[in-house]
Nucleic acid binder design. Structure first.
Length: 693
DNA sequence: TTGTGGTGT
């Protein structure tokens, strides 16, 4: 990768004192225009309409149809309508269209309902977590998140109410998409008449088509074989509605993508016609640093009227701060959005004409040998680079400046991002598959198989927490755990809370830990944030602290102002309220009573320990680090924990994240006696090597 | 000893 720094090496430094005025440091002349690699497109008014007959023919003739077409070509909004008109939703059967994101499922449903002139929830509906807007017997087209469809399979393993299932945005290759595709292939063996449509923007379609090509397999169909669809997938490509994007590469590798991105932004501002700029960096740190540098520069620009409006964008921002990026810049000014990967797929900002691509993103990597998740800055794939470039061509022809050379693009970058399933801890996925009756996980037909080490790790943990038996079959507890939309250890904590009479408290803790961040992130307010957190802190650790935050939120009558005052994310707290309701209902359905422990925190800690004993760690004699019972790695309490700077002898934690060190995040105090009490089978074996107590 | 790419049930 030329002079790019690699994950694990020292981060590139920047000097905020560097002046970019004059922009000689990185003028646009240092980019080369590579027109043969430009994304050349023409704008069509109704691209998918032209292919309507061919599409309908393919779906009728083939069990699987792969549709390649970028966002905006109409495959999501119009194809389900064509299918419905062609009679695929008759006889009470539905057409399903899955989306990776809640908001997409909802907005697409609203748009299609509007186009069809019906009200949403009638002929066209959607189903996302906490919100089912459909009418049984009336709804013909249903948009849903792929996670919801997998949940539906628990009650209806063959998805018998659907005649067609379209999996949209399959190129994103989320864990749920990959699992769903494997499951659909399996379902089609039992339901050869089920039609599957895989819709994707830029995916390597031949790969997916090959996966679904079952034409060579022996096929036992007693019914009229002639009426069954061809088991060789059909394929069609639909041109998009976006404009051409001219791609420019850096002639030389850049020594610092952060510095280069700042000077490139200033060069574009100086030399290019009006149009907003989207800059892709890796994380909150980078984004905040670039915003600061650009803001300083913007203030020094000669005329205020042609100034820059610089805005950060990342998931940790409050909803209000995120929404600022949608506001048009004041007349005559140019907007610059400095963003993480959130702008690559999740947030679409109108009016972007220029994209600057650093070539990097943060990616999660799970190491099954150490059982640790790491978040590392890594080079993006060519597919990801194309996706980023495409963000410049939604309004009119645009330009993309890549802060890496054409040689790097062609020779060093991977064609596709490694599918998430191969970078993830599989505990939840394996349990889900087990609950769906997939007995042999190792032989599940994966589109991209995860490593056997990762699968074995997951099976080991599920066995340790009593969810699987020695034959790797679900235990009665396992069936209950699988009912919950939670990580298995968290669900185990919840189910154990009944024995300790603290279920309402455990429900709150599970809900609080389910949302990404309760605290708002905001640059330069770290001290304030620490103080806000410390005002709720208790000696029992982060779990009971979260309980304290939630109960204070209730006492404050769920007030947004109160949240703002305490640097708490109001949206996140509203989600916690919804999750609590869902979890409480599930517990009650299983016949558990929701009996409170009335402030007896020992009960709460025992319940937490019962769920997370496999994440127990003991203070090392040195007194500054911990040793993980399972694996023996050295770990540290994360600085964001209320237990940072304290040294309880035993702790259990929710998750580990590696940066420079291995950090335990969300840590609770525990006790060696409790560990024995909740998991004698687990600790007895290790007694000799880990003398508890 | 010091810090959270993005989704979702």
């Amino acid at each position: 990768m030329g002079s790019f720094w690699k994950p694990g090496s020292e981060r590139p430094t920047y000097r905020p004192s560097v002046a970019f005025r004059g922009d000689e440091e990185f003028p646009l002349g240092l980019f080369e225009d590579s027109s043969h690699l430009s994304i050349e497109k023409r704008r069509h008014k109704h691209p998918i309409y032209k292919h309507r007959h061919e599409l309908l023919y393919l779906v009728k003739a083939h069990a699987v149809t792969v549709v390649i077409g970028e966002t905006g070509c109409g495959k999501t909004t119009q194809l389900p309508q064509y299918l419905s008109e062609a009679g695929w939703a008759e006889g009470g059967r539905l057409i399903a269209c899955t989306q990776p994101r809640r908001i997409a499922a909802q907005t697409v449903a609203l748009r299609v309902a509007e186009e069809m002139g019906v009200s949403v929830g009638a002929e066209v509906g959607y189903s996302i977590r906490f919100e089912e807007v459909t009418t049984p017997g009336k709804t013909r087209i249903k948009f849903l998140t792929d996670g919801v469809l997998i949940r539906e399979m628990m009650a209806d393993p063959l998805l018998s109410k659907y005649s067609v299932i379209m999996v949209d945005e399959a190129h994103e290759r989320s864990v749920t998409t990959d699992v769903l595709l494997g499951l659909l292939k399996k379902i089609q063996k039992r339901r050869p008449e089920l039609r599957v449509i895989i819709a994707s923007a830029t995916m390597d379609a031949t790969n997916v088509a090959a996966f679904f090509d079952t034409s060579a397999e022996k096929f036992k169909a007693s019914a009229a074989k002639e009426s069954l669809p061809d088991r060789t997938p059909g394929m069609i490509s639909v041109e998009g509605r976006s404009h051409s994007v001219r791609v420019h590469y850096s002639i030389e590798p850049v020594p610092s993508y952060l510095l280069a991105s700042v000077s490139t932004t200033l060069s574009i501002h100086k030399l290019e016609p009006p149009g907003d700029i989207l800059l892709f960096l890796t994380g909150q740190d980078d984004v905040d640093a670039a915003v600061q540098l650009l803001t300083t520069e913007a203030e020094q620009l000669p005329r205020k009227s042609t100034g820059l409006v610089v805005l950060p964008l990342y998931a940790g921002l409050s909803r209000a701060d995120q929404e600022l990026v949608f506001r048009p810049a004041p007349q005559g000014r140019r907007k610059v959005i400095v963003s993480t990967n959130i702008a690559e797929t999740s947030v679409t900002i109108p009016g972007i004409v220029y994209v600057i691509d650093s070539g990097f993103s943060k990616q999660r990597f799970y190491n099954p040998l150490t059982d640790v998740d790491a978040l590392v800055v890594a080079p993006i794939s060519r597919a990801s680079a194309e996706q980023r470039a495409g963000r410049a061509g939604r309004m009119r022809p645009g330009k993309c400046f890549r802060l890496y050379s054409e040689d790097t693009y062609c020779n060093d970058m991977k064609a596709e991002t490694i599918p998430e399933i191969q970078r993830s801890n599989l505990v939840s996925t394996v349990l889900q598959l087990k609950a769906l009756g997939i007995d042999n996980i190792m032989r599940f037909d994966w589109l991209a198989p995860p490593s056997s080490e990762a699968m074995i790790r997951a099976l080991e943990l599920l066995f340790a927490i009593g969810v699987l038996d020695t034959d790797a079959k679900l235990t009665p507890l396992g069936h209950q755990v699988a009912e919950f939309p939670l990580e298995p250890m968290m669900a185990k904590m919840l189910l154990s809370s009944n024995s300790y009479s603290c279920s309402p408290e455990a429900v709150t803790i599970a809900a609080m830990l389910s949302v990404q961040s309760i605290w708002v992130s905001s640059k330069g307010r770290q001290k304030e944030l620490d103080d806000a957190r410390d005002s709720f802190a208790v000696v029992e650790g982060d779990h009971v602290t979260y309980l304290n935050v939630y109960e204070s939120f209730l006492r404050a009558k769920q007030s947004p102002q109160w949240c703002h005052q305490h640097l708490i994310n109001y949206q996140a707290m509203k989600t916690v309220v919804d999750v609590r309701k869902q979890l409480s209902r599930l517990l009650q359905q299983l016949g558990f009573s929701l009996k409170s422990c009335d402030g007896d925190t020992k009960c709460i800690l025992k319940a937490v320990t019962a769920g997370f004993f496999a994440h127990a760690a003991e203070l090392e004699p040195s007194g500054d680090s911990y040793k993980l019972v399972r694996g023996g790695q050295r770990m540290y309490i994360h600085p964001s924990s209320v237990l940072f700077r304290t040294t309880p002898k035993w702790v259990v934690f929710h998750s580990v994240m590696v940066t420079e060190r291995m950090y335990m995040r969300e840590v609770a105090v525990t006790d060696s006696d409790w560990l024995f009490e909740v998991a004698p089978h687990y600790f007895d074996r290790r007694r000799r090597s880990h003398t508890l107590g």
